[in-house]
Design a protein around this nucleic acid. Sequence first.
DNA 1: TATCAAATCCGAAGCGTTTCGGATTATTGG
DNA 2: CCAATAATCCGAAACGCTTCGGATTTGATA
Lengths: 342, 342
Amino acid sequence: MATLKDISRALNLSVTQVSRALNDHSDVNEDTRRRVKEAANLLKYQPNITARKLASGRSGMVGLVVAFNPHMVSDGMWIEVVSGLSAQFSGRGMQFVLHIAPEADAVLPTYQKLISAGSLDGFVVVEPWATDPRMDFLSGLGVPFVVHGRTIGMTDYPFYDIDNQGLAYESAHRLIASGHRRIALINGVEHRSYVQARTDGYKKALSEARLPFDPFLLRHGVMDAACGLTQGVRLFSGDGPPPTAVICANLLIAKGVYQSLDALGLSVPSDVSVIAHDDVLTGPLAAAFYPALTVTRSPLGDAWAPLARFLSGRIEGKPLAELQEVAQYEFIERASVGKAKD
Amino acid sequence: MATLKDISRALNLSVTQVSRALNDHSDVNEDTRRRVKEAANLLKYQPNITARKLASGRSGMVGLVVAFNPHMVSDGMWIEVVSGLSAQFSGRGMQFVLHIAPEADAVLPTYQKLISAGSLDGFVVVEPWATDPRMDFLSGLGVPFVVHGRTIGMTDYPFYDIDNQGLAYESAHRLIASGHRRIALINGVEHRSYVQARTDGYKKALSEARLPFDPFLLRHGVMDAACGLTQGVRLFSGDGPPPTAVICANLLIAKGVYQSLDALGLSVPSDVSVIAHDDVLTGPLAAAFYPALTVTRSPLGDAWAPLARFLSGRIEGKPLAELQEVAQYEFIERASVGKAKD
DNA sequence: TATCAAATCCGAAGCGTTTCGGATTATTGG
DNA sequence: CCAATAATCCGAAACGCTTCGGATTTGATA
């Protein structure tokens, strides 16, 4: 483990100058810089980020804190999030670590501990709620963070989000344009901000078309196939009059809905039209929809790069305006939407 | 963020003494210690682990480095591992973090980086191969680590393992005792050390009974239901003469095997006997086997506490003898094993 | 030639903690 | 009453890095 001192000794330079050379400061001779970097390579120098953090306040380490919940065991999305972010940050010479808090109540204290322990430079927070204490907490402490998604209302923090309201609006709007009057929305768990945003978009489309909002047609649940299946059954063979179209918050739900329709002897799109949102997760799902599924599409994987960029930007003190983005989705028309029968 | 200096000032003590008081050193007056701890609480003092690491070489942070592989996305076991370990370490006042390397080749360099960066005290390594470069690498650097499982042969490092050879041996032995002569083993991916150990136990039972080893009956694959299903089909409707019993490396495989037998019109245990190993994972699997499944049982969750204990023991320099354990499994006889027909 | 600015360098302080070596006081045994 | 011992305490150095303020050299400018 070579140190700055070793390099400085070898080159007959001061530790100061070696440090400045390696960190690309301006006041060091180009030739010196070259020699220093050469020597650093030769000696396999790796900066001690502990010492760096102590001296400069920056460690180059950022983290994600999530509460353990039993549901996540079966939900591979976590790995996707963590490895996506990990790759992006290590591409920027930073370290990304995951910390699992034992329960939801422990998240804020865990932040507190990690912060005052002084080992992390910032955090990324995922799956925000419509109103979320985490952002307030971190803001209050002045700790840099970036959010995947955003809260409703004022967002004075960096974030990357997709146009959830827009995609729900457009899905509903297109179905309405095809003559549908009873449109269901099978959404994620309530109070997640993106869930709420989609509900808003859905309602907006309804009200613009002067269609009534029927609570029977709005469903919440964890976004898996089981949810799609059960909600599908309830919608199409339940108490109320069934919808003629359904919007699914993701592909798994759509899969469940297809299964339920199959079981009930209903067919897509002649009996029921379906639109889903496609997060483009890796894994064995998707692809195999028949009839081919019309979707709004925005790859989850597109989020990691901007999230990493925004968080480092925040740490470096860039202005907020450069650190916020709401990405567009793509509307992909396939075969699962048809004219409403009446 | 109070520091030691703040406390020392408030109490008119030296920083040294405050540090020693908080760390339970011997040469500090009981009364002083009490006062110090009180003040620390009052000022919400949290030790700066960055500074601590720099001064003492210990940060109280340990980590797990795993290579990203697409398969893990669908495999919830990771969350289980990470959260189990996380809980145990935080119970010992330590931090546990996960670092995902972009690919298998990047694991060793990632260790290298994290080590010379000087932020972690040690590592836990999981899913060892029969011969595994990670242990050699870490040993060579003198970095503390603990292994979940162990390599074949000399193990001069702390580990927690279960008696894989024993459970495979006993499973095979019992089936042989019930008159079975053709016994299949659907095992995990080759070259994992626990997979190899189980193969060894299986072969040992065969050879003790003077039964031939038939490569047709030994299957390897990722340990999920799909594997159990396909291997089941191949075993029981494939080229070779089918077995009368099958040992499954975990419950998911067993589930797939049950499905395959069901599909082929074979029944348990009259046509085929089944024994599986039960890791007792949380999640929606298991439980629903009919007929009830005979298993060897050793909960994965039992591993986290000893692993954490062993790693901190290693860091504190405890002797190796106290830091190794191979846990016993339990044999649970249920309804899936019967006499062999002939 | 004197002056100034730019380029390049360095010493020293400081980040918050641990720890070594000793200092001070109180206690005990002879 | 003195020396030895135990109980408590403290100053200062160290960990490896960054950074502030200034020093030195060079070249251009007036």
